[in-house]
């Protein structure tokens, strides 16, 4: 399901800023990154590359149906 897991987050918020499609937010209580809008993940890996502790793991599957030009 696209962005899948966040382990070892220190809550710096960089991934929140970095994600072009606004998938990640900081949980107001735990102050840790959460995958808030997984359906909008475009699987670009920017968040993972920018995370200082490499906490984010991403799989290639999209969580909603994928529409392409032919199938």
């Amino acid at each position: 399901m696209a962005i899948e897991n966040i382990n070892g987050c220190i809550g710096c918020g960089i991934c929140v800023q970095t994600c072009p499609t606004d998938v990640i937010r900081l949980d107001p209580k735990t102050k840790k990154a959460i995958i808030k809008y997984p359906a909008d993940c475009q699987i670009c890996h920017l968040c993972r590359m920018y995370c200082p502790v490499d906490a984010i793991s991403i799989t290639p599957e999209k969580s909603i149906p994928v529409i392409v030009s032919w199938g």
């Binding site: 670009c44 290639p60 199938g71």
Partner: peptide
């Protein structure tokens, strides 16, 4: 794009983003 996991931009571009 690639037929399998068509939505996976990063994978489709074979690591070029890095």
């Amino acid at each position: 794009g690639q037929a399998t996991n068509a939505a996976a931009c990063y994978d489709g571009w074979h690591g070029m983003f890095e």
